[in-house]
Every structure is written in structure tokens, then in C-alpha cells.
């Protein structure tokens, strides 16, 4: 009852199609990374899911129900949409208190989430004095208020210091392990790789990938080894017979694409070629992601 169902979701702003016939599902018990370049439609999808924007067509539901039909929404879904979305004139405690009051959440829960988010000492301060990192923590505190089964976090690590990033990562993993549904958007693959189990990738409002993190990596990285040998000439000839090419890298090392260490090692041994160093090198996830989304980036610098 906590899964998120997106069906044929489309949103047009004038002539721009921000979300284009999107269909995917987000399941409980794991952290789903919601990836895509800026302008790919991630935030729009989240706003549509929360009923803040109206879909042109299609549906976005949580456990089969529209968010706007929940009588006690904060108990079902916690959302961090925009860390700036808090009135600067209020104190952190007042901000959380009015949210809590609207959903019959007791005042002591406000103190709990302030504590859990590490901003309890700043509870009486006006939000306009907060750094971006503190606002982000306040936003996460607000999302946790109703102890919801579903969390939607839009770029939660934005503006956080390294300690904060680790905190968010741990928090998401803990919440997912408790069986909650966690959808976390980011435009950074490297960051997402650190916490996501599953990936949904968008480009120009379309679904580019909906796969587990492992599959995503395996499907998109070509095997490559990095090696050092005292006899590059014989090794080059041996590899050429296999249809592989040895390319010179920096400081006397070589790289070979299309083969893994567990195959190349025995091959070199059979030929009696001494290997000084041999290791697998995975094409970086970042690169795989960039390759996937390159054609779909709305704003790209021309080179």
C-alpha cells in the first residue's frame, strides 16, 4: 500500500512537455534513485504525485490512491521538495508545528524530528538565518513528521556538508530497511550510486531506465583491465590473436578493453608473459549515466 504508481503521466506547460507518457513503479523496502539532468522532469513528477501541479493526462498514485484524497497526508507521505519552501520569518519550531497541527501530530513529535535532524539547538531561530544545509535538515525533519511510509526527497543532499550527506545516506538506508518507499531525486550519478538500490532515469520527461543499480552498472560498463608487464611486445601479439588491443596508458601501464582480469591473467600465464600488475577497471558509473542522458539533456554546454 506504500508503492508509488506512475501511469502514462504527461504534463505540458504551454508547448513544452515536461513529462512525457511516463510509466514506472516505486516499490517499498529499497531506496530508488530518481535520476536525470536538470529539466528532465523529476521535480515535475514529484509535484504531480503530490497534486501540486495538475497532470495533462495519466495518473500518479500512492497505494492506488491519489495523494489529494488522503485525509491525513503527512502520515502517508513525507516530502522534501524545495529546501527554500519555508517562510523565513518563522522559527523552525513554528514551521514544523503548523504542519504537525494540520495532521493531528502531537507537539512532542516536533521535538523528536528536530532532534533527529540535528537542528534542535536552532529550533527557536528564524528560518531566514539558516544556512542551506540547515534548511535542508529542516525540510527532512518536516518530511519525517508524520512517520510516513513513503518519502519523496528532491535533491536532499543539496547544500549539506560531508557529514550531513553521510547522515542523509544513512537515514535513507535505515528508512528503506524499515520497509518504507524512498524516492530520492538527484542529478548526480556518483552521489546516487552511494545509496540507491534501484534507479529510475529520466531524460526530457521520458523514461530512459528503470532497473536495479547492479544491472545498470553491468549493462553499461564495458569490461576493461589495467596492467603492467615487463614484456609488452609479446603480450600485445598474444592479445592481438584474441582480437584485443593494448593501449598505452600513463606511467608505463597499459589498458585493454573488452576483457576481464580473470581471463587475461591465465592467458598471460599460458604464454609465460610476466605480469607485474593486473586489475579490472569498471567504466565509471558517472560516465555510463552521462552517455545515457547526453542526448536527452535539455541544457548542455556546446563544445
Amino acid at each position: 500500500m506504500n508503492s508509488i504508481e506512475i501511469r502514462e503521466l504527461t504534463k505540458e506547460y504551454g508547448r513544452t512537455r515536461a513529462v512525457d507518457h511516463l510509466t514506472f513503479e516505486v516499490l517499498p523496502g529499497r531506496v530508488t534513485g530518481f535520476l536525470g539532468p536538470n529539466g528532465a522532469g523529476k521535480s515535475t513528477t514529484m509535484r504531480l504525485l503530490l497534486g501540486l501541479d495538475r497532470a495533462t493526462s495519466g495518473t500518479a498514485t500512492i497505494g492506488g490512491q491519489r495523494f489529494t484524497d488522503f485525509p491525513d497526508p503527512l502520515h502517508r507521505v513525507g516530502a522534501l521538495l524545495d529546501a527554500q519552501a519555508a517562510h523565513g520569518g518563522r522559527t523552525a519550531r513554528a514551521h514544523l508545528s503548523f504542519l504537525a497541527a494540520a495532521n493531528r501530530i502531537p507537539a512532542r513529535r516536533v521535538e523528536e524530528v528536530l532532534e533527529r535532524s540535528g537542528i534542535a539547538s536552532a529550533a527557536k531561530r528564524r528560518i531566514k538565518t539558516f544556512s542551506l544545509g540547515m534548511r535542508q535538515r529542516l525540510g527532512i525533519a518536516a518530511a519525517l513528521l508524520g512517520d510516513p511510509g513513503v518519502l519523496l526527497l528532491d535533491e536532499p543532499t543539496n547544500g549539506l556538508d560531508p557529514e550531513g550527506i553521510i547522515w542523509v545516506r544513512e537515514l535513507m538506508r535505515t528508512l528503506a530497511a524499515e520497509g518504507r518507499t524512498i524516492l530520492v531525486s538527484s542529478h548526480l550519478m556518483s552521489e546516487t550510486a552511494a545509496f540507491a538500490d534501484h534507479l529510475v532515469v529520466l531524460g526530457q520527461g521520458k523514461l530512459l531506465a528503470d532497473t536495479s543499480m547492479e544491472e545498470f552498472i553491468d549493462a553499461r560498463s564495458t569490461p576493461r583491465v589495467r596492467l603492467r608487464t615487463s614484456d609488452p611486445v609479446r603480450l600485445r601479439a598474444a592479445l592481438a590473436r584474441e582480437g584485443l588491443e593494448m593501449v598505452g596508458a600513463d606511467d608505463g601501464r597499459w589498458t585493454v578493453e573488452g576483457i576481464q582480469a580473470e581471463r587475461l591473467g591465465p592467458l598471460a600465464a599460458r604464454e609465460g608473459i610476466p605480469m607485474l600488475e593486473l586489475s579490472d577497471e569498471r567504466a565509471s558509473l558517472e560516465q555510463a549515466y552521462l552517455d545515457l542522458t547526453a542526448d536527452h539533456a535539455q541544457f548542455a554546454a556546446t563544445r
Binding site: 509535484r47 497534486g51 503527512l74 521538495l81 524545495d82 519552501a85 519555508a86 517562510h87 503548523f98 518536516a142
Partner: peptide, 10 residues
């Protein structure tokens, strides 16, 4: 500052 978003989520 998007206050309405916060309010309408609650």
C-alpha cells in the same frame, strides 16, 4: 518561497 507547496502537502 513556495510556502503554498508546503501548506498543500500538509
Amino acid at each position: 518561497d513556495g510556502g503554498l507547496r508546503t501548506s498543500l502537502v500538509a
